[in-house]
Design a protein around this nucleic acid. Structure first.
Lengths: 220, 220
DNA sequence: GATGGTATTTATCAAACGATAAACAAATAA
DNA sequence: TTATTTGTTTATCGTTTGATAAATACCATC
């Protein structure tokens, strides 16, 4: 009543625009409600009717699949792997940059919650994402830590499971902070630079000792 | 056909037995399916009819509430806090024992997944659990780290946010391993003693340096 | 400005789902 | 044996929910 034209007066968007709009809102929506969220409410938020969703996605599952794509695949930076292995820079420097960027991606409600939701649902795409993390971050970083500690290359002396675990734990430091903040709603340290510096310092100081302990009995 | 008596031939259990049975299965069931799991399927697993659930719990929500109680409240060990503050033992020893026990509780599919599910749902009980972790583990451990590093007591020099963050990250090491294993289904190191030792070693070696860096400008 | 294509809505279905009431049956007591 | 209690099932209700088909309205083109 009064003025019918509220905010988004535009109707009849182009298919590209509408699809983009739906996906963007779906990411926010499912991140909040979980994948149990109803298509009707999603439509309501978009200011469209529920059947219109099915013009763009054949099923709710298809829409969820698309959400995965946009969140996981779309936000991975290709330079991360090469950043780790660039020995022209000191390891500390490399880690500060890598996890500075990574922390930015993680510090996002949708990213964290959808990662968790996908895990709980046991989606294969989620598995592929973590394979990527392992292959392109964890394993290379293990190799660099060997190098820094003056220990044999993984090609010579295969990685111990405990070594990967140590690096996963360091990596997890940042993920777990995201979970504390975006899943549990606990206040966390917000100064990104300090966060990364503290974590990297603790890791570089602590890892060599742990590494020696792990490999002690395997070295002659 | 043939023998109708399959496995659990017992019918008409006592209210206590039946309730216990329902809660136990509900924990497993919801941990797998999420809280969207249907009461009909839960009943099917129990070999009972769906309406019987409502004889024991007034609603699905009430059953979920009970699941929280059993998982979070029921599995907290009271000795953990006193273990940390017992300075008659070296800090390394204390941490090995505490997280040895804690790791046992965590290494449980139901515990990890229900903790996550509760977080995603934003339940207050979940919040209370994490308050307990902070109050009875994180804060005391911060105090002990100050002591070990020969730094002023938190009563004298209040804790910096970054200090809590550092300890949360150490704590998260164990949680994140549980998430990797029970949410993402990634293989993790299974030797509990080695896990704890590696994590504690890395923490005790790395934390002092990080702590000094954090407090550098606040100390005279 | 009529026409055709298509983005969007209206109307509706069928199954899923939480919940309730009444009927049934197993144990206990008289 | 009969009576009484109560654990359990059968039958069913009212919504909710993903999905489809037909009708409608916006927009470009001739």
């Amino acid at each position: 009543m009064g003025r019918d034209q509220a905010m988004s007066e535009k109707k009849r968007l182009s298919p590209q625009e509408r699809e983009r709009q739906i996906v963007d809102e779906a990411i926010r929506f499912f991140a909040e409600q979980g994948f149990g969220g109803q298509t009707r409410e999603l439509a309501k938020r978009l200011g469209i009717t529920q059947p219109l969703l099915y013009r763009y996605f054949s099923s709710k599952e298809a829409l969820i699949e698309r959400v995965y794509q946009d969140v996981f695949v779309g936000r991975w930076k290709e330079n991360w792997q090469s950043l780790i292995t660039d020995r022209s820079q000191p390891i500390r420097q490399r880690l500060l940059r890598l996890y500075g960027e990574y922390a930015e991606v993680i510090d996002n409600r949708e990213w964290v919650r959808i990662l968790i939701l996908a895990g709980m649902k046991g989606e294969s795409l989620n598995r592929r994402y973590l394979d990527q993390v392992r292959e392109k971050i964890i394993e290379p970083l293990c190799r660099e830590m060997r190098f820094e500690a003056g220990l044999p290359d993984p090609d010579t002396l295969p990685l111990d499971e405990a070594e990967r675990d140590l690096v996963w734990s360091f990596h997890g430091t940042f993920i777990y902070r995201g979970i504390r903040k975006w899943v549990y709603g606990i206040p966390v340290m917000e100064d990104s630079d300090t966060i990364v510096e503290t974590a990297v310092t603790a890791f570089l100081e602590g890892a060599p000792a742990a590494l020696s302990a792990i490999l002690a009995d395997r070295l002659d």
